[in-house]
């Protein structure tokens, strides 16, 4: 059985968080550049140009791409054959605390609104998986976009059209507020909590294998969301979403839960293996 010291992940993980906060995900940046080239509405083209300039400047200067460095959402997959010495949760939170060293501290008690001043605790999701590795997926979740995320408890009769309409309604109601162009994570199935969790996971594990009907659904949602005409920053244009990612789980015969996580264009994330 492989043994891992929890304390050994702290420094490497914190370095990766620092890097992610100043370097927008490569794929998202490529989608933004493509959107700038394709967009025909002048105001949105201008906005996309400013965003691309910002992201390149942030990377060149190691500056925070956005002042909202988000709440840290971590998906942690622990191999069942791995033995971890020390407290893993404490180590993950310590990595977040260090990784957010000079970043803005955006985590507060929900009732007193007192800031924790460390950007911890992180939002932690644990999975037990086969093997002996430890995988940590990180997503910086800003409030502007997260406030626009929604859960829809549909009935099965609503079907595929209902799923698409929910995603489109979510984006339409969000309008200019979540910093479009957005990325959409769409969790379908399970229970209310499971679909919400899947909608985050979908944004992070974008290379996960997909069925043909899941891919077709992603494409249809992207097409219909972009037909809303909201455009970059809500200035009225053709590109409201850069990408859509669907993830599904079996659900009860009487349910069709759908969660939509709205992620801003400042897509800061990584997956690390230990």
């Amino acid at each position: 059985m492989r043994t891992l010291q929890a304390a050994d992940i702290i420094i490497p993980l914190s370095e990766k968080i620092k890097y992610a906060l100043t370097h927008v995900d490569e794929h998202a940046l490529a989608l933004l550049k493509n959107a700038e080239a394709k967009e025909r509405a002048p105001l949105c083209k201008w906005a996309l140009g400013q965003i691309v300039e910002n992201d390149e400047l942030a990377a060149a200067e190691n500056a925070y791409a956005c002042q909202d460095c988000g709440q840290a959402v971590l998906f942690v997959s622990v191999g069942q054959d791995l033995h971890i010495e020390g407290n893993l949760t404490d180590a993950l939170n310590e990595a977040v605390r260090l990784g957010y060293g000079t970043a803005r501290k955006s985590v507060a008690d929900p009732l007193t609104r007192r800031n924790t001043h460390t950007n911890t605790p992180a939002v932690l999701h644990y999975d037990v998986v086969a093997g002996d590795s430890l995988t940590v997926g990180y997503l910086a979740k800003g409030a502007g976009s997260e406030n626009m995320s929604r859960v829809y408890m549909l009935t099965p009769s609503k079907g595929i059209d209902g799923i698409v309409n929910s995603a489109v309604e979510c984006v339409r109601l969000a309008g200019s507020s979540p910093c479009p162009p957005v990325l959409l994570g769409i969790g379908i199935g399970g229970t209310m909590d499971v679909c919400a969790r899947l909608s985050k996971k979908a944004l992070l594990f974008t290379d996960a294998p997909k069925r043909d009907d899941e891919r077709a659904l992603e494409e249809r949602i992207l097409r219909e969301v972009n037909a809303t005409g909201i455009g970059a920053q809500g200035f009225g244009g053709e590109i409201t979403a850069l990408a859509t990612y669907v993830m599904t789980a079996p659900t009860h015969i009487g349910m069709l839960p759908v969660a939509v996580t709205v992620q801003c264009h400042s897509d800061r994330k990584f997956i690390a293996n230990f």
């Binding site: 300039e53 400047l57 791409a65 956005c66 264009h265």
Partner: peptide
Amino acid sequence: LAAIGGAGALYKH
């Protein structure tokens, strides 16, 4: 007036 959301590194300058 609307500024560009997510362009904090640009505005810093």
